[in-house]
Each structure stands twice: as structure tokens, then as C-alpha cells.
Design a protein around this nucleic acid. Structure first.
Lengths: 208, 208
DNA sequence: GATAGATCGGACCAAGTAGTCCGGAAAAAC
DNA sequence: GTTTTTCCGGACTACTTGGTCCGATCTATC
């Protein structure tokens, strides 16, 4: 899966690549705090200090820009989670992962939710390509969680008959749902509670 | 908490009430399938067969209409859930509740998600009043779930030390997150899996 | 350094959108 | 039955927004 860094067969100079990156960065920030629909192209131009011709030089239109944003935040999130989860193999490690997410979200009183989740709910009934890209990203993220659970299983903490993939799905759902409830209530507590419950469930399975 | 059925001190004839209801009904449907941002006032007018002056006669503007839609779907959802959960006092009953939600969502391949959840993620960073209304609705819904768990507790199924409110929060988060994952993947499975996991957790707590 | 292609700023356009206004019909109030 | 208020259709406006276009400038390559 390669992101369309350069359109068609056109070459891309260092200067052009830099401009393109600035556009995506500005769009990412704006769409995160204002939402995709409320972010206009003029907003993006003003924030990135780039002219309109450049935006259309690098992207086919707003939909294409949104897809580039999805690729960009997807990459960042997966990178961050790979960093955070890559070596976790204990329930304590999962708890620390939880703490980091909760604290990070608490800084903004949960106001903006999960970067991927917000995009997903806003884009999925408008652009099929974007939806599929987000679906793949969720699957990848969930895979990282499943890997952790598998390591727990290999270490004997989690019994072999536990269905790791289903647990990962449940954890992911609780995380995303928690993000959303926190965003609506402007209070991270529900997010923390939801994750804690899944971790408690995993711990229960381990003690049996 | 009373919904603003009539603006200010103006009277509302039966005819006027009917027109108002038609507007809200059309807006509710459109915003559910197209999203709030993508639904224009002209869309609502065309779908309801009402003139623009009437829309502005009954509502201050789009934001006010959105709030009326939130009240409307909130009422419907709470009504439906009160119906579905009001007399549930066993885990089997909870399973049947789960089945109904999953089957209902499967009809549309999960394409539109939860009526309340979709509104929440689209509106919460734009209109504070709407966000608070949604927050209250989620709390009310969660209260219905907590009531069920309390009945489980009273019946001796769930131990007294189980924290019913936190379990209800976790269940709600899993439900909402499941809806979102299902919507993104166009597949209800993750929603079903997520709820099943919470129910399994509740069952585990009961067996200890 | 000449040439071709990439990059650039910004004016411009067409369509869509929220919101306003007014003359008249229906219905309630008395 | 008259008067007051609500209800109604739809034209109209002001503005935003996505998208186009063109002339000029930079940059890689030969």
C-alpha cells in the first residue's frame, strides 16, 4: 500500500515536496480541531501560507487532500502505537499504555477525540476510498494490540484458549467508544473507565 | 428538561405543529444517512415539502434545527431502549438485547452507525449546547443499562461489590466503539464481538 | 546558459448555501 | 363578522466555497 506522494508521473523537486508536506500538515491540524467538513481549502491555504494553485497542483481536490491527511495521521498513529506497544508483554505494560493515552487526552479535556476515530465517523459515509483506508488502519492498530495479547499468551499469563483477536477487537472498540464519550462529556473519565474494564477482563481471564 | 416545541411565547396551532414535525422528521432522516454537515436546508425543504419561510418560522437557523433533531432522535432512542431494557434482569435478557441491536444494524451493513453516536462525533466540536444535550442523553441511556445491572445484582447474579456504574460505562463505550468500527468496516462483526466481550466479562464476575 | 518542466501567486468564476422579506391565505380570538 | 395572529410560498440577497486559469519565476538537466 503506497501513498500517492507524487501525482501521476510528474517529478517532485525538494521544494515541491516541502510545499506538499506543509499543506498536509496544516490540513491535518485544522481537520483535527475543526473537523473535516468545517475545514475549508482557504483555511488550509491561510494556515500553510501556500497559494491555491499549489494545492491543486499537488492534489486533485478536497477529497484527495483528505485522503492524504488520513494517510498522514494514520502513519503517525501507527508509528506511535508501534513504539508504545511493540515491547509490551505484561498486563502492567498495558496499564502504562493506557495511562499514556488517558493523560494525553486529558490535556485537551478529551475535546478532539481520537485522531483516527474522528476522521472515520466524519468521512466514512462520504468517501468510500477514505473509509477503506481508515478500516485498514484500524485493522493494523488492532493487530498491534493482538500481538501484545499473544505475547501475554506465550508468557503463560493468558490461557491458550483465549481468543486474542476478539479481545483485541473489544479493546479497540472500548478505546474508540471511550474516546467518543469523553469527547461528548468533555471529561476523560469514561475513556479511562472503559479501557480499565477491558484490562480487568483480561486479568480475570489470566487468573482462572 | 423540556424541548423547545414552540419558540418564544408564540402560539402553535395544530397545523403549525404538524409542519414543524415534518421538518424535524425529514431533517432527522437526512442527517442520519448523509451526516449533519452534508445535509443542507434546501435538502430538508425538498424532503419535507415545506417552504423556507416555515423553516425559519419554527427554527432560529440550522443549529437550532440540529438541536431539535437531537432531541427527537434522543427521545426515540431512549424510548426504544427503555422498552428493550426496562424489564431485563438476566444475562440472557441482555443477550437478547444485544441480538436485537446487532440484527438491526446488520440490515444496513452498519453503514450509518448509532443514531446518537454519529450525531455526537459530528456536532460536539461545533455546538456546545448540542454537545451537552447529547451528553445528557448518553448518561440517561447508560442509566438504563446500570438499572439492568443493578437488577442482576439484586437477584444475586452479580456480586454486590461489582461497580455497576463503571460496568455500564464500559458497556456503553464498547457499544459505541463497536458501532463505529462496524460503520468503518461495513461489517457488524466488530460491534457484535465488542458487546459479547463485555457480556462475557459480566458473566465472569457473576461466576466468581 | 539554454530549455523544459516544476513551482508559484493570486485573480477569477460558477455553484451552492444560509438567511431575509413580503404579500397573501388560513385559522384562531373576540 | 371582524380583527389579530399564525402559517405559508417562494423570490431574492449576500456570502462562502470548491475549483480554474494564466503569466511569471525557480530549478534540474543537458
Amino acid at each position: 500500500m503506497t501513498t500517492a506522494d507524487s501525482r501521476d508521473g510528474r517529478r517532485l523537486t525538494a521544494r515541491g515536496a516541502k510545499t506538499r508536506a506543509r499543506i498536509v500538515a496544516a490540513a491535518t491540524d485544522l481537520m483535527y480541531v475543526k473537523g473535516v467538513g468545517a475545514t475549508t481549502l482557504d483555511d488550509v491555504l491561510a494556515a500553510s501560507g501556500v497559494s491555491k494553485s499549489q494545492l491543486y497542483h499537488h492534489f486533485d481536490g478536497k477529497d484527495a487532500l483528505v485522503r492524504a491527511v488520513i494517510d498522514h495521521v494514520g502513519e503517525r498513529v501507527i508509528e506511535r502505537e508501534r513504539e508504545a506497544l511493540g515491547r509490551v508483554s505484561t498486563i502492567r505494560g498495558l496499564r502504562r499504555w493506557r495511562d499514556a493515552l488517558v493523560q494525553n487526552n486529558a490535556l485537551r479535556h478529551g475535546a478532539y477525540g481520537c485522531a483516527l476515530g474522528s476522521l472515520a465517523s466524519e468521512v466514512s459515509d462520504h468517501d468510500a476510498l477514505a473509509r477503506q483506508a481508515l478500516s485498514r488502519l484500524f485493522t493494523e492498530w488492532q493487530g498491534l494490540l493482538a500481538d501484545v495479547l499473544r505475547r501475554l499468551q506465550d508468557g503463560g499469563t493468558l490461557p491458550p484458549e483465549a481468543s486474542v483477536d476478539q479481545l483485541a477487537t473489544g479493546l479497540m472498540a472500548a478505546l474508540q467508544g471511550g474516546y467518543m464519550l469523553a469527547q461528548t462529556a468533555r471529561d476523560v473519565t469514561p475513556m479511562a473507565t472503559a479501557i480499565d474494564m477491558v484490562l480487568a477482563h483480561i486479568e480475570n481471564l489470566s487468573e482462572r
